[in-house]
Nucleic acid binder design. Structure first.
Lengths: 379, 379
DNA sequence: CATGTTTGTTAGTAAACACTACTAACAAAC
DNA sequence: GTTTGTTAGTAGTGTTTACTAACAAACATG
């Protein structure tokens, strides 16, 4: 804490110098974020919300209108004295984003989304089950098709891919697609001429939950699919990790009592309890405890693995995303209870485990949110 | 986006606008950081390092010299053509920081440190073992004494305290000190008239390791004392958590095979294996495996607890701090091996577990680093 | 000694936002 | 219907910031 009013040093500890143009971009993004989050707003309200003066806001809004990101939508209607303000809103349907979800097994999914993250157009490209690997060109073609199908100018292309993805848009390894070292970001950028963002599917999902959903500033999202992955937001920032492999907790050993053999060759991996195939099996072969008992054990194991993470980061919220018939209440409750039983919690509401919102489109929405963040400074 | 999520989003995006004065502070801090890290530097070199122009740097340096944070130390001596530059350096001994370490049991520790984080003056205030609690006034008096003993003007006071500390400098709960809801930050600020920073001891320690040591951008520091605490830096940012309790992993249940009864009333807490008292006991009563076997088991348990954290955050480095006779190689190795055995690592050097540097003064140095960060933008 | 190089400063310019003052528009009170 | 007070938005001016251009000083090298 600082009790005196001495000038605090800059909070932004970036390594680069600040120029006036960057200041401008920062404040433009600030205004856009405020309007995006708050809906139609008058310039005066923006001024109060940002701390900028009304003339400064007028100037910024004028530039954003000029760029096509904001539009005037009407007048305030109110019963207070004074001139009613002119409402400006994000040009929600005037720009679009193309998003790709490469995680589904039966098809490649693409979509055009508006600036709210709502899907406007859907495209699917079924995949041959026998295919050894997916030709990256098919992905590029699908992206081009989506761009062509967009009803509005496209701001950029976002991709949520399985596997390990570098910050430069290179997919280092994606066994499900049969890819190693695929420069998808560069290929897409070349083909479409648009800004491209590529990230891991779990990172995209947590981004969607954080930016477009109701996510808190510290958030862990568990993604249950063929395997298990996680995406993390800490202090409002997505976590990448020292080797870009943050969230890879599917093969963490859980407990000290062995477990089934995992496809990775070891025993007791989290995936052997918590993954779509494992949960399907558990539900198909109910033990003596009934249909839910098997799922309860999975939740318990998940809680055991999560407890140290929750305690270390002091997470307030864990979100689980996956097939709706598998992410059932019993799983959520068992997970929450197991975490609570294994950490020293002062309050009963320290942690909530909940389902993701719009699980079907979460990767598409997250990939779109990524583009909105990089292109407009939204988030 | 549903309407119900808008208030939260608006709250999150209420980052402050950038004014010219803040730009100035940012660039001043940038220059200071560069010199602090690189030693005596000429203005032209600073210009190249920051990307700012030479006139801008001259102006910034002039202001920093005016404030007393930089000094000219001499001329470059070199054998290249051109005018030799005038070297400027951080006024390393011209300003000081007062730091307090409240974690020791036998005494309160205070120190005056220079801008490099080197201890210049030490003060100890022995505590009565029988004391029920520590009078905050004693801490305030010690701080005043340290300020008076400083050979240079004091920039601020940093405090590393056990227990839960809010960002406003309130110590919510510190059983070891007998404190609940102690507004130490405000009291110190009032008494000294200086900026005050208060934080948890583990947070201070990780700050020291990150800022003044050789810490990476993602860092977990385990602090072994009467109990066990941790401090976290993720993406270069210290982690506070949803309730300000990040790093409280001492009472995480480890494994699924029970364990000794913990003072918190449950079984299998990490502290029952890894804490100063537990390790002392283990070393005093060697099992059949010998003196090291008991410590090895502690390291193994620590690794079991850390594995999910390391995997989720993709940490490259874990640092262990504690009494030197307890943090022995066997503990480090056992921890590292246990983590490796329980996560899917692609490379053998994915994670290194090492000892902290200067373990004795780590909290003092971290508390000082906090002040340097808030007051000068260093770090 | 002339030449080229590098440093640091001065003078002027451009960009961004703050401040003040003004007009426009509206509600409430008379 | 008129007055009063309040709010929104816009000009114009001033301050702060950093950049560009130009220059003198100091040095190595030929």
């Amino acid at each position: 804490m600082s009790a005196t009013t001495q000038p605090r040093a800059a909070q932004r500890s970036s390594r680069t110098a600040v120029r006036s143009a960057q200041t401008r971009e920062h404040n433009l993004a600030l205004v856009l974020r405020l309007v995006h989050a708050g809906g139609p707003t008058s310039r005066a309200t923006i001024a109060r919300g940002t701390g900028l003066t009304r003339p400064a806001v007028s100037d910024l809004v004028a530039e954003l209108i000029d760029r096509g990101h904001l539009v005037e939508t009407g007048m305030e209607e109110q019963n207070r004295p004074g001139k009613p303000g002119v409402l400006v809103d994000v040009n929600r349907s005037g720009r679009a984003v193309v998003a790709l979800d490469l995680t589904a097994y039966e098809s490649l999914r693409a979509a055009v989304l508006d600036l709210d993250g709502t899907v406007v157009v859907r495209l699917d490209r079924p995949l041959e089950q026998s295919e050894a690997g997916v030709d990256p060109q098919v992905v590029v073609d699908l992206a081009l098709e989506a761009v062509a199908a967009s009803p509005a100018p496209v701001l950029g292309v976002g991709v949520g891919s399985p596997g390990i993805v570098t910050s430069a848009g290179v997919i280092t390894m994606a066994p499900n697609l049969g890819w190693t070292e695929v420069h998808l970001g560069a290929e897409l950028a070349l083909a479409t001429g648009l800004p491209v963002e590529v990230c891991n599917d779990a990172d995209a999902a947590v981004r969607a939950e954080y930016a477009l959903g109701a996510g808190a500033d510290d958030l862990l999202l568990i993604r249950i699919g063929r395997g298990l992955g996680a995406g993390l937001v800490v202090g409002g920032q997505p976590v990448r990790g020292a080797h870009g492999a943050a969230g890879e907790i599917g093969h963490v050993t859980v407990g000290t009592d062995g477990g089934r053999l995992c496809r990775c060759g070891r025993r007791g991996c989290l995936e052997t309890w918590v993954s779509a195939p494992s949960l399907e099996t558990a539900l198909a072969n109910p033990t003596e405890g009934g249909r839910e008992a098997a799922v309860t054990e999975a939740g318990e194991r998940l809680g055991i693995a999560l407890a140290p993470i929750v305690a270390a980061l002091d997470l307030g919220e864990v979100v689980i995303d996956g097939p709706e018939h598998l992410v059932i209440d019993e799983l959520l409750l068992a997970t929450e209870r197991a975490v609570h039983d294994r950490i020293l919690s002062r309050l009963p509401l320290d942690l909530t485990v909940r389902r993701s919102v719009q699980p079907g489109d979460i990767v598409l929405r997250g990939a779109a949110a990524l583009v909105l963040g990089s292109q407009l400074g939204l988030v």
